[in-house]
Amino acid sequence: MTEQPLLVAEGLHLHFGETKALDDASLHIWPGEVVALMGPSGSGKSTLLHCLAGILQPDSGRVAYHGRDLTAMSDSERSALRRGEFGFVFQFGQLVPELTCVENVALPLRLSGTGRREAHRTATDWLERLEVGDVAGKRPGQVSGGQGQRVAVARALVSRPRVVFADEPTGALDSLNGELVMKLFITAARDTGAAVVLVTHEARVAAYSDREAVVRDGRVREQEHAR
């Protein structure tokens, strides 16, 4: 494998008003690896994730994906990148409540221009793969939290992204459901070869990673990429 990092953040600084969210944060994500971003709440791990994904723009510093500088891109270019190359799983409230589960999963494909029928077929496959094929026609409000998270994972992976950003994906679940979601999520991500950036404060969730990076006071202590 050519050892070039997929996603590089260098010297990121970001302020929210008076609060320093990122203070010279740097991180490298290699293709196909699962990295856990850990740290106490308010340490800046979610902010770092949003910067890596091009959702937030840092005040200074650089984020490069495949050598392309995200911070220099226009908003629509970054949106297109997120549509095509990235996937997202959040803690909760991420499924569009009025769309059915299969429509939610099909959404990223349709946003990238795939036809409705084709998108729904692929989405159904992904729901089956995450063992929630039976909820395809239901609305998010009608399924359990664990099922909803698995639908969200299916949606994050459906467009075969190179990186999946997961922000406390099991934060709202009990341990049994959390384990199931993580197992299915990481297995599926490894199958597709996607890298995963996993923000969590739970060690058992972080244990699904290949290595961890600890964020404290806006800085990153990164564990060596062991390869």
Binding site: A36, A203, R204, A206, A207, Y208, E212
Partner: peptide
């Protein structure tokens, strides 16, 4: 600890 947990996982 995490290395160990990873192993167990």
């Amino acid at each position: 600890h995490l290395r160990m947990m990873r192993e167990l996982t």
